[in-house]
Write a protein that binds this DNA or RNA. Structure first.
Length: 214
DNA sequence: GTGAGAGCTAGTCCAGCCAG
DNA sequence: CTGGCTGGACTAGCTCTCAC
């Protein structure tokens, strides 16, 4: 908990900016390669949500927006807790109908969460980060509350994982072929560009010769 | 001492799921 | 398609801590 990631290790500093105080400031764009840490700054509450959501997706859990707190002065949100969807335990509620199937239990008492608060400067700063989950992390498919994985048996999960792995390999091959074609096009363009340059130079040279003869 | 924020929790509301 | 049901989002109240 509270450990600071080594930014140079993951090599992705593209989305980390310098704030006015010289601290790292995270934009709302793709920053999923960075791990949160206490003191991390965001442009907005939304940026923090986007960041943690991307981080959650990358690690294989689902983000749930938990409690928030408003300022007593202006009523604006100044504090927000973002948690793992398995955070805590579901509160017991009386079942209103016996012939309805209860929904899948999602809460497992996980502690993973991030707490961000709005500073006087207007920046949102991480004040608490609980990294550890008490459950295995799995790749999340789809979006929103329901996932494909949650409703599947272990066998179905294996089949799905194999299918997705095969699809990933197919897409990688396709990507490699497209990359090769793109490289060829770029080489052709460069070749053509050089050819045009030579032609232009020839024309210029010819014009100069004609002018010098006059 | 007082005001404001942090942290936790119980209660309420509402969007969306799903059985009929 | 509809209405009941549910999980998640949100609100509010409480205690504790800390700065002024």
């Amino acid at each position: 908990m509270d450990e600071q990631p080594s930014m140079s290790e993951n090599g992705d500093m593209n989305h980390i900016m310098e704030s006015s105080e010289g601290k790292e400031l995270v934009s709302s764009e793709g920053i999923s390669d960075v791990e949160p840490y206490v003191g991390m700054e965001f442009e907005s509450e939304e940026a923090a949500k986007v960041f943690y959501d991307a981080y959650a997706t990358r690690l294989g859990f689902i983000m749930r927006v938990d409690a928030f707190r408003r300022s007593m002065r202006d009523g604006k949100v100044v504090w927000r807790r973002l948690v793992c969807n398995k955070e805590g335990f579901r509160k017991l509620r009386p079942r209103r109908s016996e012939n309805r199937k209860p929904r899948a239990i999602t809460r497992e008492g996980c502690k993973a969460a991030i707490v961000v608060k709005k500073e006087k400067t207007g920046k949102w700063v991480v004040t608490r980060f609980v990294k550890d989950h008490n459950h295995p992390l799995v790749a999340v498919l789809g979006s929103g509350r329901r996932t494909v994985i949650l409703s599947q048996t272990p066998d179905e999960k294996d089949v799905k994982i194999r299918e997705l792995t095969a699809e990933l390999q197919r897409e990688r091959k396709r990507s490699a072929v497209l990359q090769e074609q793109l490289d060829m096009i770029l080489r052709d363009m460069e070749h053509h560009s050089n050819h045009l340059s030579r032609k232009v130079e020839d024309v210029v040279q010819s014009v100069r010769e004609i002018e010098s003869r006059r």
